[in-house]
């Protein structure tokens, strides 16, 4: 038996499945994470339809791997890694700059209307590079620690620190630029 087959057999092929990997386990993880994944995808893509599709794909992928759910140490991290990869693929395929208006419309629930600073911040976010935007979203909107971000972004903790600093500086520059343009 090759090493791969042996590894595969240990991951569920060889053993009789336990109830921990059935639909009820899937439902628990789904209800705990569905809004987080959708929010992340929406802020990454600025497109409600695409964010919904990606959320669906992420959870269908989890469902396909339901026999391995107990072996996955960090389900939330696993879901975000999947969502992030799908979002980046989608952006790569789409090759489209997210329009500022689109972001505003999609997040109309936020109190941007009452708070002009929040509106500018959203526009500044939309103008960030993908890698900066995902770092800011993971930290500011999803509340991940640096070590969790390192796992999701597949970089070192010190690289996360550097990435986040550069993202914040770029965000501040974008913010000032948009604010000046508004005043003119």
């Amino acid at each position: 038996m090759s090493l791969d087959r042996f590894s595969d057999s240990l991951q569920g092929g060889f053993w009789v499945a336990r109830s921990g990997s059935d639909h009820s386990d899937f439902c628990i993880h789904f209800h705990e994470n569905k809004d987080h994944i959708f929010d992340f995808a929406l802020r990454m893509l600025g497109d409600k339809q695409a964010a919904g599709d990606i959320t669906q794909d992420v959870f269908m992928k989890l469902f396909e791997n339901r026999n391995r759910i107990r072996e996955i140490q960090n389900i939330r991290g696993w879901l975000f890694i999947s969502a992030r990869n799908m979002c980046l693929n989608h952006l790569r395929d789409r090759r489209k700059v997210i329009s500022m208006e689109e972001i505003d419309q999609e997040h109309s629930n936020d109190s941007a209307g009452d708070n002009p600073q929040l509106g500018i911040l959203k526009k500044a976010m939309a103008e960030l590079d993908d890698r900066f935007r995902e770092a800011v979203i993971l930290r500011e909107f999803q509340g991940f620690s640096y070590s969790e971000m390192a796992e999701i972004l597949q970089i070192t903790v010190s690289a996360v620190r550097s990435l986040l600093f550069n993202a914040r500086i770029r965000l501040r520059e974008n913010y000032e630029k948009i604010e000046k343009a508004r005043l003119i």
Partner: peptide, 10 residues
């Protein structure tokens, strides 16, 4: 400023 955001729901 980020603390004022509301999370989108599926």
């Amino acid at each position: 400023l980020f603390s004022n955001h509301t999370k989108a729901t599926l």
